[in-house]
């Protein structure tokens, strides 16, 4: 099996409930996407999280139509993922990705 890269993941704003009510996770992400043989990017990470880390069947509260549900903010190393290339951003060892839901009660 190919090597992995360590990535820190955080879920807040109510998303914790989908991931065993745990806010912070340290994961070992495969360093490349086996289906494309490309280096692991955020798109691959989201898919991987659904398949490997999510403990709740309500996947549609996290992902809709192949990407993060509208209303969920993604921060890559504390910056808006839209500034970093969104799904195409290639993850580096030690990166931190935060998913914040804005959809829960205010």
């Amino acid at each position: 099996m190919a090597s992995t890269i360590p990535v820190k993941i955080e879920f807040t704003g109510g998303l914790e409930i989908l991931f065993s009510h745990q806010r912070s996770h340290k994961i070992a992400l495969p360093s490349s996407d086996p289906s494309t043989n490309q280096p692991a990017n955020v798109g691959f990470l989201i898919d991987w999280l659904c398949k490997n880390l999510m403990k709740d069947p309500r996947e549609d509260m996290f992902v809709l139509e192949g990407t993060v549900r509208p209303g969920i903010l993604v921060l890559i190393n504390d910056a808006d993922w839209e500034l970093e290339g969104q799904e195409a951003y290639e993850l580096q060892a030690g990166d931190e990705v935060v998913f914040v839901s804005t959809l829960h009660g205010g």
Binding site: T12, G13, G14, L73, T102, H104, G105, G106
Partner: peptide, 21 residues
């Protein structure tokens, strides 16, 4: 914007409660 409110809370490290009723 809701997005900016959440960003403000995030960057100011405000602690808030976020579970749906």
């Amino acid at each position: 914007y809701e997005k900016e409110i959440v960003m403000y809370a995030h960057h100011k490290k405000l602690d808030y409660f976020s579970t749906e009723c």
